[in-house]
Design a protein around this nucleic acid. Sequence first.
DNA 1: GCAAAAATGTAGAACGCTACACGTAGAACA
DNA 2: TGTTCTACGTGTAGCGTTCTACATTTTTGC
Lengths: 337, 337
Amino acid sequence: MTKKSPARTPRITIREVASDAGVSVAAVSKVLRDAYGVSEALRAKVQASMEKLNYRPLASARGLRGRTYTLGLVFPDLRNPFFADIFVGVNAALERTQYQAMQGVSVSASSLVEAMIDRQMDGLVLIGPNETNARLNDIADRIPLVAIGHHDIEEARFDTVNNDDQLGARLAVRHLCQNGHKKVAMLSLAAPVSTVINQRELGYRLEMTEQGLGTAINIVRAPQVLRDVQLTVRRLLESRDRPDAIFCWTDLMAFEAISVATELELSIPQDIAIVGYDNTVFCEFAQNRLTSIDQSGEVLGLQATRLLIERIDGRSHSEHFVVTPRVVARASSAKAG
Amino acid sequence: MTKKSPARTPRITIREVASDAGVSVAAVSKVLRDAYGVSEALRAKVQASMEKLNYRPLASARGLRGRTYTLGLVFPDLRNPFFADIFVGVNAALERTQYQAMQGVSVSASSLVEAMIDRQMDGLVLIGPNETNARLNDIADRIPLVAIGHHDIEEARFDTVNNDDQLGARLAVRHLCQNGHKKVAMLSLAAPVSTVINQRELGYRLEMTEQGLGTAINIVRAPQVLRDVQLTVRRLLESRDRPDAIFCWTDLMAFEAISVATELELSIPQDIAIVGYDNTVFCEFAQNRLTSIDQSGEVLGLQATRLLIERIDGRSHSEHFVVTPRVVARASSAKAG
DNA sequence: GCAAAAATGTAGAACGCTACACGTAGAACA
DNA sequence: TGTTCTACGTGTAGCGTTCTACATTTTTGC
């Protein structure tokens, strides 16, 4: 079935660079890799030839012996603009390095990770992985790994970068309480495994208790799907004893909450206050004016990438970086009245 | 500087599969590639061994001789959820094939394309490329290429998949006119090159003229940046002779328009009607209720991928697939009164 | 039955690069 | 002067696949 493609211009190889520069192939390779034992004169000669011939090393060939200079980013989905912030951070960290990031979106569980290992990524950044520690350790045994958004670091053979989700949740609740809201519900995510969810829910519970609102604790969970979120919110807002505030798992969920509230002709924040998480760009829009917890995705991405490169370069003990979240207050959580 | 990483379990290679199955390496390779000349018995034997050993072919090694079974998707940015729709389509097309998609976000112009060629992608899908035809042809000479959102197909040595942007713009204007809006402005994008922008602006002009509103033609352009869009919209809405409707380049821009209008205490659609493009999920939200032109990203992604695989398999003449857009009417463009 | 054709399997040379193991030359030291 | 270092280059064996060419067996045609 496989026919021949039209002939394409063949690539410049390391051999041609070597012969053009009048040096050995090994010498060119050394220059390429910044390896030890190269004189300035030789480096200059080789670099001139590379430039002249417009040489670009072929990643597959490099990968077969050494590294591919490619990092894999695994996103849980593409709809949340928060991930774009992380991506910005990753790219900032990659500036002035030879590395390139390739993204994938984990459609079917962990098959993407396998695909990336098959493709010889030098390392992986998993963003919000729904995986157990054991499973992550398995992966880490095969490829340098950093997880963003995974709190279980016991015996972890990989690095993690997190915002303090427990604190984030506490800040949200505290902020709402300070603004006079009492019956704070939490709209959480119904997902198989997630240490992030656990932390947020824990923070919510602890802070509610601390605020003397232990009896008002109310966690409802919805799957990521649009319909389900709306149904869940609607049920919550129409319930006999409606909360006066909702702390949402994500800005995206919060926007849906705003939508449902608007449909029910409840006014925000008078009838119902809303707080999101991630401080996405859309929070700023006048139709949302959503108070949100900022976990600075850019920093998360930057640090994760930094750690990953360190790990590729040989570090074997685990490091765990934590960002302190902060409240960005907007109208959606203003004083009740 | 490069230290040794902790020893990782070595991979299963084709050789081990061959020896386990008691056949030659070449035979295993044939099975892997569905090549001609393999008996059922042999195939079964080999597949059993592959399963048993959990063998996965290494893409780098394959790439050195044949293909990597990897397709590269190049997105212009990560913030627009419309791209998630395209991605869904791509994945649908990849189901039951050996191919895997890897995404990249084009930060610095075309350097990502080079990086993907270096990494031996079998083909590329460029989404909304800001490139000239000549430049795209250059790329197409080096790698199978499909562009989504590029209308200049003259002498194109690549395939394209588009929605009919000219029609889309006409539909938007027509819809607004039918609902009694007359002074329809267009909020367009200030970008270096884009045949998509040209088509939309052309459609807008033509339809305005056809509706007898030639004198009301008013195109303002803003760069993608948040601040600039808001400034532009604000200027437009505060101008002496304010339009009564805005047709926006993108839902994202439309949401910003809604934001500015809300801030100015203009009501939608009474004071100002708004129409977007892409029919993103957020359009449905009650705080937006945004009328939008649907160009079915899923179909775009699916078709692009289909064409790309055909092209990889040897097709050399160009094909151009066009999707017909449709209006999805919501409150933001309802009758003026 | 026998030649020709088709089907099935194998050997082994690439693919472009890295990294190990060396070779050489000059400097430093005694 | 010889010996030991150090710095700098080179030759070349793979890395894990694919694919061409060929060898062998089976089927077909008459």
